[in-house]
Amino acid sequence: MTLTARRYVVVVLVAAAAWLVVAAAALTIGPVNIFGVGGAVQRQMLDGRIGEVVTASLVGAALAVSGAAFQALLRNPLADPYILGVSGGASLGVILGTLVLPPAWLYLRLPLGGTVSLPGVCGFLMALAVIAVVYLIAQRRGRLDPYRLILTGVVASAFFSAAIMLAVALAGDRLRNELIFWLMGGLGSPRDQRGELAVAAVVVMAGLAVFVWQARGFNLLAFGEDVAASLGLDVQRHRRTAFVVASLLAGISVSLAGPIGFVGLIVPHLVRMAFGSDHRLLVPLSVFGGAVFLTVAHRLVLLVPYEVGGGLPVGIVTAMCGVPFFVLLLVCGRGIRGGVL
């Protein structure tokens, strides 16, 4: 496949524009008609919605590109950002932080305004720890083998899901309900999250930049390790970087919004089906695709009136809307080509 610079720029710019349009439209959609309220209320609502849309976009982008990276790294079409236990670790960190930290510390006010949720920070630190542990177990003399990595990750994942279940079982009545809802994934916060979102945005952008830069390496790896090496790719270094950065993205998205399923699995596949499996396009398109997908899913959730069960976790919608769409593409479209391997 030929990817000219012109095509690259055009496709990426169109995707970015699509995201901007969706984000702007999302600001006008919500539980309340924002045009029907007065100026002061309108500003408050807009403030809240910007927070929601930014969170959804950041988390969606991080998950989608992390999923694309894991699918390429592990050479497994079923890989998603949560496969290596990083999200389990991050979730456990958030839950333990909530259970253990003194109440007054749960939300720290930043000097510049906004608050930071310390359980979220615990989640991120835990994700870092899990990345280190999984890496240490999976590597052999500095070599990272995808099969060892996936085995280690699945075991770590199983361990953390057990630990989460334990924590949920031991939590009090009311907190347990909240934990369960949180584990289904939610977006936005009634608190002033600006500080938190700014930090997360920097980390996510840096991670995305790394993958854009690494895209060619993923393409080479698709030919197999030996071919990639003979074409001049430092395979081990590439794998290490991809593993760490993809895990970081997964960790930060869980810390921000809880484990939202399916985005990281499906968005890269959708992009592949539509635009082929060249990672130079796949990575940036997954970024915008993930952002759009999660933003739209979240807006859909918000449209459910509260009398009939509003306040659903967005993770339910991502799966329920994503699966039929995925099946439709699979049946009617070109299907999943060997883009992953």
Partner: peptide, 26 residues
Amino acid sequence: PRVHFEKVSQWPIEAILISAPGDIAP
């Protein structure tokens, strides 16, 4: 039910009572 803050902001609420028993951790 669970309600979005936006929706709540439209209600004519004169008093908000937050039930937060001290024995429910955290």
